[in-house]
Simulated scan of single mutants.
Amino acid sequence: ENAAKKYRDYLDPVLKQTEHAYCIEEHIAPMLSDTKNPQGIFCVCRMPKRRADGLPVSAESDTRPCRHVLVMENIQDPSNMGNVLRTAEALGVRHLALVGTCCDVYAPKVLRGSMGAVFRLGIRRFETAEDCLKVLHAENITSLAAVPDSAATPITTIPFETGSWAVWIGNEGNGLTNEAIEHCHDRVTIPMRGRAESFNASTAAAIVLWEMERNGAGGTSHG
């Protein structure tokens, strides 16, 4: 009841779309939540539809061709996944591919971290890097493997404003698999000046996403 009053302006359009709505007692809320201090609003949502083949279509029914794609391989930390999804949506990259043993994008921590982005992005899972690369190559998308190697091509020099690109981000501890690195068109790296050997996976993804979209090319493609 308190949440219904506090978030009335937010809830009004939601209640108009829902099939059923219930007002629960305050002591029931903690039983439904995995957090100690729930906000008091709970929704059961239908998972977005996915295409059977090709790259994923966003939940907003955007059927236009992909401009850029972020590929995440074996990302297992739900917090990292949520941060990446939120950043991707904020910067205009609507298409993501999850390869290997990535964590569940509908896990509670991912949902909270993504701030709802998981429902608005086009996301498709692939069991192997080979499966994903076949689809990307069929769509004429150039794949780049992000690696912590100063000998790799600086990502700041990639002409993201032309063509379509997919940048691969690897596991938090082990990076990308050899299979992914070997079959991508090129290796790229984020220039580093300090003594750290690498970036956190979600931080690396954020930098990559910014580089992909900072000239507005991807945003123009997706509207």
Rank of each mutant, 00 (worst) to 15 (best):
V135P: 04
V84I: 15
D186A: 14
R193L: 11
L144R: 03
C103I: 10
M115P: 00
R64A: 13
G122V: 01
F126K: 04
T156S: 12
R120E: 12
G122E: 07
Q76S: 14
A107D: 14
A152F: 06
G82T: 04
A152Q: 05
L96P: 00
T63Y: 15
V105D: 07
A107P: 04
L96G: 01
G116W: 04
A138R: 11
G163A: 10
R64N: 14
R94Y: 09
L98W: 02
W165Q: 04
T101Q: 14
I75S: 00
L121S: 02
H183W: 12
G194F: 05
N74P: 02
S164Y: 02
A129Q: 00
V93G: 04
L70C: 09
N74C: 11
G82E: 01
I190H: 05
S143R: 01
A151H: 12
L91R: 02
A180P: 03
T177I: 08
F119L: 15
D77E: 13
D77S: 09
M115F: 09
N80V: 06
D104W: 10
R86M: 02
T157S: 13
R124G: 07
P65Q: 08
T87N: 10
H95G: 09
S61V: 11
E179V: 12
I141G: 03
A107Y: 14
S61P: 05
G175A: 05
G82A: 08
A90N: 04
G173H: 13
L133F: 10
A145W: 02
R125W: 15
V110Y: 08
P148T: 03
V188Q: 02
S79N: 13
L91I: 06
N171W: 05
C184L: 00
E197R: 12
D131G: 07
I190P: 03
T157D: 14
I155T: 06
V110R: 00
A152G: 10
E179N: 15
L98G: 00
D77G: 09
V99H: 03
